[in-house]
């Protein structure tokens, strides 16, 4: 009994060290922010109806538009630097024929229009979420975030942070295929 008790501290401590080693050597921990699954995954996309950013930008879209085909919803803003970094990947997706929608998060319409004009507009439609109210319903914590919606309008996947080439190939594209197959 006594033996067991005196071993307890060192045993607990060994467990703790194990936990810390696991966390520190987990390279995904700091690079992949989407490991925390959103409670929205597997749920229908939230109800929203966003107006167009400006007349020159095709858009305004709502929950209804996300039904009938697999689509990607990308939350972006002109003031967000990582959004610019991921822009080529989003454009690539659109180039492959994926239906990509954009939620323009807390942006100035002029700035968003200019940004899309300068860097290209890959989105089928862009909805202006000026007060970020719709973003809240999507569980957005920051920009950029990217969602995959299946043909039934159910959220299949969510990526937090910029879509890099790696993320595109290893996460987004396989998930898209999965959503299309299923």
């Amino acid at each position: 009994m006594h033996r067991l008790i005196v071993i307890l501290p060192v045993a607990l401590f060994a467990g703790l060290i194990g936990v810390m080693v696991a966390l520190l050597t987990d390279s995904e921990r700091n690079s992949d922010l989407s490991r925390l699954p959103s409670p929205l995954i597997g749920k229908p996309a939230p109800a929203f109806d966003l107006p167009a950013v400006a007349e020159s930008v095709p858009g305004g879209f709502s929950t209804r538009d996300l039904k009938g085909q697999v689509s990607v919803v990308n939350v972006f803003a002109s003031w967000c630097v990582p959004c610019l970094a991921e822009h080529p990947m989003i454009s690539q997706l659109a180039g492959q024929g994926v239906a990509v929608y954009g939620i323009n998060h807390r942006d100035k319409p002029d700035a968003a229009t200019n940004w899309l004009g300068r860097h290209g507009n890959p989105y089928i439609a862009v909805g202006a979420d000026l007060d970020a109210r719709a973003s809240l319903d999507w569980g957005v914590t920051g920009v950029p975030e990217t969602f995959i919606i299946d043909a039934n309008g159910v959220i299949a996947y969510k990526h937090v942070g910029p879509v890099t080439k790696d993320v595109l190939n290893k996460k987004i594209l396989p998930k898209l295929r999965e959503a299309e197959g299923g």
Binding site: V10, F13, A14, I17, M20, V21, L23, L24, T25, R29, N30, L33, L36, T141, G142, V160
Partner: peptide, 29 residues
Amino acid sequence: SGVLTSVHAFATDPERGIFILAILALTIG
């Protein structure tokens, strides 16, 4: 060590964390 990072803060190089963890493991262990 950077183990206490929040969702949107990118941690620093984990080398320091591993080093202190080694000291910790040896000393307390």
